[in-house]
Protein backbone atom coordinates (compact mmCIF):
# COMPACT_ATOMS: atom_id res chain seq x y z
CA UNK A 1 0.00 0.00 0.00
CA UNK A 2 0.95 3.66 -0.26
CA UNK A 3 1.15 6.06 2.68
CA UNK A 4 -1.71 8.50 3.32
CA UNK A 5 -1.02 12.15 2.52
CA UNK A 6 1.33 14.02 4.85
CA UNK A 7 3.49 17.13 4.72
CA UNK A 8 7.26 16.83 5.15
CA UNK A 9 9.88 19.03 6.73
CA UNK A 10 13.63 18.37 6.55
CA UNK A 11 15.56 20.62 8.94
CA UNK A 12 19.34 20.57 8.45
CA UNK A 13 20.38 21.84 11.88
CA UNK A 14 19.24 21.62 15.49
CA UNK A 15 18.44 25.33 15.38
CA UNK A 16 16.09 24.73 12.43
CA UNK A 17 14.59 21.68 14.11
CA UNK A 18 13.70 23.70 17.19
CA UNK A 19 11.68 26.01 14.89
CA UNK A 20 9.73 23.05 13.44
CA UNK A 21 6.09 22.51 14.13
CA UNK A 22 4.63 19.41 15.70
CA UNK A 23 5.06 16.24 13.71
CA UNK A 24 6.12 12.62 13.70
CA UNK A 25 9.92 12.48 13.76
CA UNK A 26 11.56 10.09 11.31
CA UNK A 27 15.27 9.30 11.14
CA UNK A 28 16.09 6.30 8.90
CA UNK A 29 12.44 5.42 8.43
CA UNK A 30 13.01 1.68 8.49
CA UNK A 31 10.27 1.10 11.09
CA UNK A 32 7.99 4.07 10.44
CA UNK A 33 8.21 3.48 6.66
CA UNK A 34 6.38 0.15 6.75
CA UNK A 35 3.81 1.60 9.19
CA UNK A 36 3.17 4.49 6.80
CA UNK A 37 2.84 2.12 3.84
CA UNK A 38 0.39 -0.07 5.77
CA UNK A 39 -1.47 3.06 6.89
CA UNK A 40 -1.45 1.90 10.49
CA UNK A 41 0.35 5.22 11.10
CA UNK A 42 -1.13 8.30 9.43
CA UNK A 43 0.71 11.36 10.74
CA UNK A 44 -0.36 14.61 9.09
CA UNK A 45 3.13 16.08 9.39
CA UNK A 46 6.49 14.29 9.25
CA UNK A 47 9.85 15.79 10.24
CA UNK A 48 12.88 14.00 8.80
CA UNK A 49 15.96 14.57 10.97
CA UNK A 50 18.36 12.53 8.82
CA UNK A 51 19.94 15.72 7.42
CA UNK A 52 20.83 17.17 10.82
CA UNK A 53 24.62 16.98 10.92
CA UNK A 54 24.86 17.29 14.72
CA UNK A 55 22.95 14.02 15.08
CA UNK A 56 25.35 12.04 12.90
CA UNK A 57 28.46 12.65 15.00
CA UNK A 58 30.19 10.43 17.51
CA UNK A 59 32.12 11.43 20.65
CA UNK A 60 34.53 9.27 22.63
CA UNK A 61 35.21 10.18 26.23
CA UNK A 62 37.33 8.41 28.84
CA UNK A 63 34.49 6.24 30.07
CA UNK A 64 31.89 6.25 27.30
CA UNK A 65 31.10 6.41 23.63
CA UNK A 66 28.37 8.86 22.68
CA UNK A 67 26.71 7.94 19.41
CA UNK A 68 24.61 10.47 17.50
CA UNK A 69 20.96 9.52 17.10
CA UNK A 70 21.22 9.35 13.30
CA UNK A 71 24.30 7.11 13.15
CA UNK A 72 23.32 4.01 11.18
CA UNK A 73 23.50 0.39 12.28
CA UNK A 74 25.82 -0.24 9.30
CA UNK A 75 28.31 2.41 10.49
CA UNK A 76 28.44 0.69 13.88
CA UNK A 77 28.65 -2.80 12.34
CA UNK A 78 31.57 -1.69 10.14
CA UNK A 79 33.51 -0.30 13.08
CA UNK A 80 33.21 3.26 11.71
CA UNK A 81 32.24 4.23 15.26
CA UNK A 82 34.59 3.61 18.23
CA UNK A 83 33.60 0.50 20.20
CA UNK A 84 32.96 0.39 23.95
CA UNK A 85 35.32 -2.61 24.12
CA UNK A 86 35.09 -6.37 23.52
CA UNK A 87 33.69 -5.78 20.01
CA UNK A 88 30.24 -5.52 21.57
CA UNK A 89 28.67 -2.77 19.44
CA UNK A 90 29.68 -4.09 15.98
CA UNK A 91 28.60 -7.62 16.94
CA UNK A 92 25.12 -6.41 17.89
CA UNK A 93 24.75 -4.06 14.91
CA UNK A 94 25.76 -6.79 12.48
CA UNK A 95 22.70 -8.85 13.47
CA UNK A 96 20.08 -6.13 12.95
CA UNK A 97 17.70 -6.82 10.07
CA UNK A 98 19.52 -6.81 6.68
CA UNK A 99 22.36 -4.75 5.23
CA UNK A 100 20.01 -2.60 3.14
CA UNK A 101 18.05 -1.80 6.31
CA UNK A 102 21.21 -1.27 8.39
CA UNK A 103 22.37 1.30 5.82
CA UNK A 104 19.36 3.49 6.63
CA UNK A 105 18.20 2.52 10.11
CA UNK A 106 19.59 4.55 13.01
CA UNK A 107 20.39 3.82 16.64
CA UNK A 108 18.39 6.79 17.93
CA UNK A 109 15.40 5.94 15.77
CA UNK A 110 15.44 2.35 16.94
CA UNK A 111 15.50 3.33 20.63
CA UNK A 112 12.74 5.95 20.23
CA UNK A 113 10.54 3.58 18.24
CA UNK A 114 10.82 1.20 21.22
CA UNK A 115 9.76 -1.93 19.40
CA UNK A 116 10.09 -4.59 22.11
CA UNK A 117 11.95 -6.88 19.67
CA UNK A 118 14.57 -4.25 18.74
CA UNK A 119 18.19 -5.37 19.24
CA UNK A 120 19.37 -1.98 20.58
CA UNK A 121 16.55 -1.71 23.08
CA UNK A 122 17.50 -4.99 24.75
CA UNK A 123 21.28 -4.67 24.51
CA UNK A 124 21.58 -0.95 25.34
CA UNK A 125 19.47 -1.55 28.46
CA UNK A 126 21.88 -4.34 29.44
CA UNK A 127 24.90 -2.10 28.81
CA UNK A 128 23.48 0.65 31.04
CA UNK A 129 23.14 3.19 28.21
CA UNK A 130 21.25 6.46 28.46
CA UNK A 131 19.79 8.76 25.83
CA UNK A 132 20.77 12.44 25.67
CA UNK A 133 17.80 14.59 24.76
CA UNK A 134 17.38 18.14 23.57
CA UNK A 135 14.45 20.46 24.06
CA UNK A 136 14.09 24.19 23.62
CA UNK A 137 15.04 24.84 27.27
CA UNK A 138 17.95 22.40 27.46
CA UNK A 139 17.78 18.65 27.64
CA UNK A 140 17.99 15.54 29.81
CA UNK A 141 20.01 12.37 30.23
CA UNK A 142 17.50 9.52 30.53
CA UNK A 143 18.63 5.96 31.36
CA UNK A 144 17.05 3.42 29.02
CA UNK A 145 15.37 1.67 31.94
CA UNK A 146 13.19 4.73 32.45
CA UNK A 147 13.17 5.93 28.83
CA UNK A 148 11.15 3.03 27.48
CA UNK A 149 7.65 3.00 28.90
CA UNK A 150 6.14 0.20 26.86
CA UNK A 151 5.74 -1.04 23.31
CA UNK A 152 6.30 1.85 20.87
CA UNK A 153 6.23 4.33 23.77
CA UNK A 154 9.03 6.43 25.21
CA UNK A 155 9.38 9.10 27.88
CA UNK A 156 9.99 12.01 25.46
CA UNK A 157 7.82 15.04 26.01
CA UNK A 158 6.37 17.13 23.18
CA UNK A 159 9.17 19.17 21.60
CA UNK A 160 11.88 16.91 23.03
CA UNK A 161 14.16 14.82 20.82
CA UNK A 162 16.95 12.27 21.31
CA UNK A 163 20.25 13.70 20.05
CA UNK A 164 22.52 10.80 21.03
CA UNK A 165 22.92 7.67 23.12
CA UNK A 166 25.67 7.46 25.73
CA UNK A 167 27.10 3.96 26.12
CA UNK A 168 29.52 3.37 29.03
CA UNK A 169 32.77 1.61 28.11
CA UNK A 170 33.22 -1.96 29.30
CA UNK A 171 36.08 -2.91 31.63
CA UNK A 172 38.73 -5.18 30.12
CA UNK A 173 37.48 -8.10 32.25
CA UNK A 174 33.79 -7.58 31.38
CA UNK A 175 31.85 -10.57 29.98
CA UNK A 176 28.81 -10.42 27.79
CA UNK A 177 26.42 -12.59 25.84
CA UNK A 178 23.57 -11.95 23.43
CA UNK A 179 21.27 -14.50 21.90
CA UNK A 180 18.15 -14.05 19.83
CA UNK A 181 15.83 -16.57 18.24
CA UNK A 182 14.51 -15.68 14.77
CA UNK A 183 12.85 -18.02 12.29
CA UNK A 184 15.01 -16.38 9.63
CA UNK A 185 18.04 -14.11 10.14
CA UNK A 186 16.94 -10.48 10.20
CA UNK A 187 13.32 -11.11 11.15
CA UNK A 188 11.73 -9.84 14.33
CA UNK A 189 13.04 -12.03 17.14
CA UNK A 190 10.69 -14.34 19.02
CA UNK A 191 13.05 -14.36 21.97
CA UNK A 192 16.15 -12.37 22.90
CA UNK A 193 18.37 -12.01 25.92
CA UNK A 194 21.45 -9.94 26.66
CA UNK A 195 23.76 -10.58 29.62
CA UNK A 196 26.38 -8.09 30.74
CA UNK A 197 28.74 -8.85 33.63
CA UNK A 198 31.26 -6.19 34.56
CA UNK A 199 32.38 -6.92 38.13
CA UNK A 200 34.87 -4.04 38.12
CA UNK A 201 31.92 -1.68 37.72
CA UNK A 202 29.63 -3.77 39.93
CA UNK A 203 27.30 -4.65 37.06
CA UNK A 204 25.55 -8.05 36.82
CA UNK A 205 22.62 -7.64 34.50
CA UNK A 206 20.44 -9.67 32.18
CA UNK A 207 17.79 -8.18 29.93
CA UNK A 208 15.04 -10.07 28.12
CA UNK A 209 13.59 -8.39 25.04
CA UNK A 210 10.90 -9.31 22.50
CA UNK A 211 8.28 -9.36 25.24
CA UNK A 212 4.92 -7.56 25.22
CA UNK A 213 6.16 -4.42 26.93
CA UNK A 214 9.41 -2.81 28.04
CA UNK A 215 12.37 -5.18 28.38
CA UNK A 216 12.62 -7.28 31.54
CA UNK A 217 15.67 -6.33 33.61
CA UNK A 218 17.26 -8.78 36.05
CA UNK A 219 19.99 -7.50 38.33
CA UNK A 220 22.56 -9.04 40.67
CA UNK A 221 21.69 -12.46 42.01
CA UNK A 222 18.50 -12.40 39.95
CA UNK A 223 20.53 -13.05 36.82
CA UNK A 224 19.25 -16.63 36.86
CA UNK A 225 16.60 -18.73 35.19
CA UNK A 226 14.22 -18.94 38.18
CA UNK A 227 13.92 -15.16 38.45
CA UNK A 228 13.38 -14.85 34.70
CA UNK A 229 10.68 -17.53 34.83
CA UNK A 230 8.73 -15.51 37.39
CA UNK A 231 9.20 -12.19 35.58
CA UNK A 232 8.06 -13.66 32.25
CA UNK A 233 4.60 -14.54 33.61
CA UNK A 234 3.46 -10.93 33.06
CA UNK A 235 5.29 -10.47 29.76
CA UNK A 236 2.37 -11.23 27.47
CA UNK A 237 4.13 -14.36 26.20
CA UNK A 238 2.46 -17.74 25.95
CA UNK A 239 4.12 -20.83 27.40
CA UNK A 240 6.11 -21.66 24.28
CA UNK A 241 7.26 -18.05 24.04
CA UNK A 242 8.39 -18.13 27.66
CA UNK A 243 10.30 -21.39 27.13
CA UNK A 244 12.05 -19.83 24.12
CA UNK A 245 12.97 -16.78 26.18
CA UNK A 246 14.48 -18.97 28.90
CA UNK A 247 16.50 -20.83 26.27
CA UNK A 248 17.74 -17.52 24.86
CA UNK A 249 18.69 -16.37 28.36
CA UNK A 250 20.50 -19.65 29.10
CA UNK A 251 22.53 -19.28 25.90
CA UNK A 252 23.36 -15.63 26.57
CA UNK A 253 24.43 -16.59 30.11
CA UNK A 254 26.63 -19.38 28.72
CA UNK A 255 28.28 -16.91 26.34
CA UNK A 256 28.97 -14.56 29.24
CA UNK A 257 30.16 -17.28 31.62
Amino acid sequence: MKPAVFSLEQPVSVAQLMQSGEGRIVAGGQSLGPMLNFRVAQPSHVISIAQIREFSLVEETEDAVIIGACVTHAAIADGRVPDIGKGILPAIAQGIAYRAVRNRGTIGGSLCHADPAADWLCTMTALGAAVLTLRPDGGRTIPLTTFVLGPFRNALQPGEIVQAVRVPKASPEARWGYYKACRKPGEFAHAMAAVFLDPARDIHRAVIGAVGGAPIVLEGSDVRIESAERALLQSGLDEIGRIMQLAALRRAMEQAA
Partner: peptide
Protein backbone atom coordinates in the same frame (compact mmCIF):
# COMPACT_ATOMS: atom_id res chain seq x y z
CA UNK B 1 33.21 4.23 3.77
CA UNK B 2 34.56 7.08 5.85
CA UNK B 3 34.55 6.91 9.66
CA UNK B 4 31.75 8.74 11.42
CA UNK B 5 32.80 12.34 12.09
CA UNK B 6 33.88 13.14 15.66
CA UNK B 7 32.15 15.90 17.54
CA UNK B 8 30.82 16.77 20.97
CA UNK B 9 27.34 16.64 22.37
CA UNK B 10 25.76 18.99 24.88
CA UNK B 11 25.03 16.96 27.99
CA UNK B 12 22.41 17.76 30.57
CA UNK B 13 21.59 16.46 34.03
CA UNK B 14 20.36 12.95 34.71
CA UNK B 15 16.62 12.45 34.85
CA UNK B 16 15.65 8.99 36.03
CA UNK B 17 12.45 10.04 37.75
CA UNK B 18 9.59 7.61 37.64
Amino acid sequence: LPPVTRGTFRQFSLDDAA
